[in-house]
Structures are given as structure tokens and as C-alpha cells.
Design a protein around this nucleic acid. Structure first.
Lengths: 296, 296
DNA sequence: GTGTTTGATAGGTATATCCTATCGAAAGGC
DNA sequence: GCCTTTCGATAGGATATACCTATCAAACAC
């Protein structure tokens, strides 16, 4: 039963029998049979059938919610028993927005010492991807914005409030002192791609300041932005936490962006499943410990 | 996996391999093997083994919590799919304290008309039995006291506040007007057995009024109490809701018990499992509709 | 039309499940 | 102290389930 629910979740995620089967490490006929058996046992059709996958029926959608919960709880049970057996261990899968990647080390630093048997897997993803991966049980926790987009049924630990700086090569004319958002009109910029929430936030502040931008370079990676800034006169806008790792040498400079003094809360999100698994509970504790904001 | 968790729950409940196997409709070797496989899969010992059942290990206790949740959710999934298939139907298992048995018809009256395919099974149980049956998934909801004993993780809908009356054969000298608890010293009484919470509540009020009682008749059934009252000069103490069904004729009389004007809240309790199954959600709605108290 | 993609079907084999029968250890009766 | 009963584990065998490979039929792309 639980195996079939896992396959059902995989099918809903991949929207493709063959891919879902591969993801589950079985062959396509096995997965097809499993879905059919699930439908027989539940007595309802879960998937619209044509010659190809055509989405879930309404019942399938409701069943998916239960399946996610049941499978998630079953994994929690197994994990908790493994912890009882061999102490905190296993793999903790994180997905993180690009501008918060440097914060991961704040979390792992203390954690890794205390629990050397816990491995971390960190992926860089957009905030919407993070939420959907959380739903699909593909990650255990995420690091993303807490105050902007609807989050769903999750536990959150606020970590810090993003503040923005303009980053450019040393000597750039705007690096003299704090820069207003409105001053950026006409400044050549490179920014994250518009599917990233950070970019949407920046767009919003720019447009509120009456500035139109058409960045010459867009990327999903902060490293790409900074390396372009280093080799040209382009500037970029980054949260302080994302920028400071590049500011050790003399090549780059940064100044605060003001008016408004924008601030967006970033924090840890995890599925809300009481009680938390020990590995996740330890991560949440660690997050609360390093948080700059009020304890949740 | 889920079947094994069901067997594990049954074993924890019955504390006996053979009985648990019977309860699950399998033979004892099958259940023994299932538990052993569960232990192998989880990699921990769940049950203290001797030549007989000796309780759960600490890991077994934790696993039991998860097992209850997983099995409960799996049942919810199946029930919700059945409802999607054939409308509200199935069996709704209730356990009720004896003094609230007459209230069940308030709930079922409207419910049965709207959903004729839902069957009710109603058992009379003590409040502690109700909570443990709720935990063990043996019932879907209960009717019990809400304000006295710790309830655990459940949803509650308050229904009414119990008020107490003295019930005796017409002509009994105490039936002239309201009776104080303190007036009951020396009055021959028959009461519920001390394992019932109602009796503990009554004992408390009596002892606070300085009255010692040693009932000649104790029973777990209100009917037994009333039939004794009818045939003798004994009196009994009952909540109004439990007494009024017997007060239609002229044979019995009742007067309020005052000083203090005791009041204890009775209501519906159900496992807290979001979202609720449709059948249970309908019952909770019905309970809120007939509640005399503030809506929860 | 032709080739490709996609999910369903068929058939065979390994595995898992569940039963009956029986055993050995511990507990209980007298 | 010995005998009986209770309880859970074990053994062996029949049945059901799960999963694979190979193949098919329908829909789509061009």
C-alpha cells in the first residue's frame, strides 16, 4: 500500500508513467499495475486515462494529499527508528534560494560538529520550486522568503531580514555613498532571472521608484552576476548576506540601497508534521539558535 | 507495511499475540511474523520478548504513535474515496458515557435523514475507555466530559453543561423542593460505579459538602439505577439529560441539586486529523448545530 | 503515411504471505 | 515438586503477489 502511494506521488509529480517508474526504480508496467491496483482498492479512478497521462481526477487530487501525508509519516517513522538505532544520521535535503546560499553554512556549521553522521544535500532553487519540492517530499526543508508568497501548511523559522546593496567594481561612480532606488534609472545592471522571487522583489522596488530596467545579463546564479560585475561596468543588486562573501578583496565595492530601506524576511521552512523527525527537529533548533529575529 | 502497523497496534492494545491475531483475523504465527518483520525493517526491537508479551520498548512506544497516525490516515483515505464513490456511507462508531446516552439521538436524528447510508454503532463506555478507544482507532468519535480529565490530541465540540438532579420515587420526602448536596447525608443512594467519571464528580461534590456515602447499589448502567429507584426508597443522582427520559410518568420525581449548582461540560470528541473524513465532518457539523454552548 | 512516444497487456518467475502443525519455555495449580 | 496450561516461536507447504521482459495498440509529430 505505502509503496503504491509512493508510486502515485511520483506519477503526480512527473506527470509521466515512464519517468515516474524510473524515479521509483521500477519498470513502467510495474508502476502502471500499481496505480491500477490502487484505483481498484480505493474504488475510484485517480488518473485521467487516455493514451497518455492527462492529469489527476478530483478524487486523485484528494488522494494525493493523503498519500503525501501517509508516505511522509512512514518516512518519519523509519527515520526516527534509525536515529534510535544509530544516533542522528542520514541525509538532510535542503533547497535554497540563490541569495540565501551563504546562510546554509551558518546552519550546518554547528550542526555538523554535533551530528557528524548527518549529510547535507543542498540545491539552489526558486522559492516556488522549494515549496513544491517540500510538498512532494523531495526535500526535507528549504530556505526561502517567508513574508511574500503563500506558503501552505509548513513550519517556519525566521532567520534574518534581507537588506539590499548595490554591488559594482571598485571605482564605479555610484559607490560614493548610499544610493536611492530611484538613482538606478539608466544604470546598466545584471540581475537574477524574473522567475526568481528576489528579482520580483527588486523589480517591485524599482518600479515603485519609477525606474525601468532591462538588464543586459540575467542569470539564476549569483556567481554569474558577480563575475560579470567584476569584468565590466555593470552593477548588480544583491542582499547583503549574498554579497558579502564576494567583498573580501578590493576589486568590488558595495553601498546600501535606501529609500525605501527594503527588507524581506528569509527563513527555514519545513513540512509541518508533528512530531518532527529528530534530524529535522535538530535543524529547526539550530535555526532558532542562529536566528537574528524574534524566536518563533 | 500498513497491515503490519495495524497488527502492531492490535498487539499493543491486546497485549497478547494470540488475541491480537484473532482481532486482526489472522493466526498467531502470522502476527508473530509480521511483528518480527516490522522490527527487521525498522531495525529496532519494538516489543520486549520473553516467553510472553512483556510490553513495548521505548522505540516501540514511539513507533506506536506513528503507526496510529499512519493507519488512521490510511483509513481516512479509504473512507474519503468510498464517499466520493457512493456518497456518505459506512459505519460511524461512537462510544458514550452512560449519562450522555440520551444525547446521541439528538445527533443522529438530523444526521440519519440527511445521510441514510451511514450506520451508527453506539457503545456505552467510561470516559477513560472512550479516550483509549479513540487512540486505538476503535471508535470514530466519543461523547464524554470535556472539562475534567486530560484529553490528549483531539478535536472537541462542547454540547451542553450537565446539571444534576436527585431522582426518587414519587412521594419521597426529599422531593419537596431543591436539595442541597449537604442534605444527602444518610440518604440511601444508588449510584454509578466509581470507575465512571460521573461518579467521581458526584463523589467530589458530596465530599466537598461533607457527606459520606456508601451506595447499596452500584452499576455501570443508568437503567439499573432507575429501576432500583422505582422499586424501593433509594434515590439516585443523575444529570438532567440522563434523567428526563424516565420522568414521563408519575412514578418518579426529581428535584435540582443545589449548593453548589454543579455543572460539567459534555461534548463530542474526535481524533484531530486534518482534514476530517467526510462522515466525521458531517457529525461535527451536526454537533455544532445542536450545541447549547458557544460554538467552538 | 511513417516513425516515435506512451501506456496497457501477456506470460513467466521469484518472492512474500499465510495457513496448519508442532515445539519449548515459562507460569500456574494442587 | 510435578503436572498441566498458556504463550509465543518455528517448520513446512500451498497460494497469492510483485516484478520483470517482451510486445501491442493508440495517439501524435512531421
Amino acid at each position: 500500500m505505502i509503496d503504491k502511494l509512493e508510486m502515485f506521488i511520483a506519477l503526480a509529480r512527473e506527470e509521466h508513467f515512464g519517468r515516474a517508474a524510473t524515479a521509483q526504480g521500477v519498470t513502467q508496467p510495474t508502476l502502471s499495475a500499481a496505480i491500477k491496483q490502487l484505483e481498484d482498492q480505493l474504488g475510484v479512478m485517480l488518473v485521467w486515462r487516455g493514451s497518455r497521462y492527462q492529469g489527476l481526477t478530483p478524487e486523485g487530487q484528494r488522494a494525493l494529499d493523503w498519500a503525501r501525508r501517509i508516505v511522509g509519516d512512514a518516512r518519519s517513522l523509519r527515520q526516527e527508528m534509525r536515529v534510535a538505532r544509530e544516533g542522528l544520521s542520514g541525509d538532510l535535503r535542503l533547497a535554497v534560494i540563490p541569495t540565501a546560499l551563504t546562510v546554509v553554512s551558518d546552519l550546518t556549521a554547528g550542526y555538523g560538529d554535533a551530528h557528524p553522521n548527518v549529510r547535507f544535500t543542498v540545491q539552489s532553487k526558486t522559492s516556488t520550486e522549494i515549496l513544491s519540492m517540500l510538498e512532494n517530499l523531495e526535500i526535507d526543508a528549504g530556505l526561502t522568503y517567508l513574508d511574500n508568497e503563500p506558503l501552505g501548511r509548513v513550519t517556519t523559522v525566521p532567520l534574518y531580514a534581507e537588506r539590499y546593496v548595490l554591488v559594482a567594481k571598485s571605482g564605479h561612480p555610484l559607490l560614493k555613498g548610499p544610493v536611492k532606488w530611484a538613482d538606478l534609472a539608466g544604470v546598466p545592471l545584471c540581475l537574477l532571472t524574473p522567475d526568481m522571487q528576489n528579482r520580483r522583489i527588486i523589480n517591485q522596488h524599482l518600479s515603485e521608484a519609477g525606474v525601468q530596467v532591462a538588464p543586459q545579463i540575467e542569470s539564476t546564479s549569483v556567481v554569474v552576476l558577480v563575475s560579470h560585475v567584476l569584468r565590466s561596468n555593470w552593477a548588480t543588486i544583491l542582499p547583503v548576506r549574498a554579497a558579502e562573501i564576494f567583498l573580501n578583496g578590493d576589486d568590488l565595492g558595495s553601498v546600501p540601497l535606501i529609500k525605501p530601506d527594503a527588507s524581506h524576511v528569509v527563513g527555514l521552512v519545513a513540512p509541518h508534521r508533528e512530531p518532527f523527525t529528530p534530524v529535522l527537529a535538530a535543524l529547526l533548533d539550530r535555526a532558532k539558535a542562529v536566528s537574528e529575529l524574534g524566536k518563533a
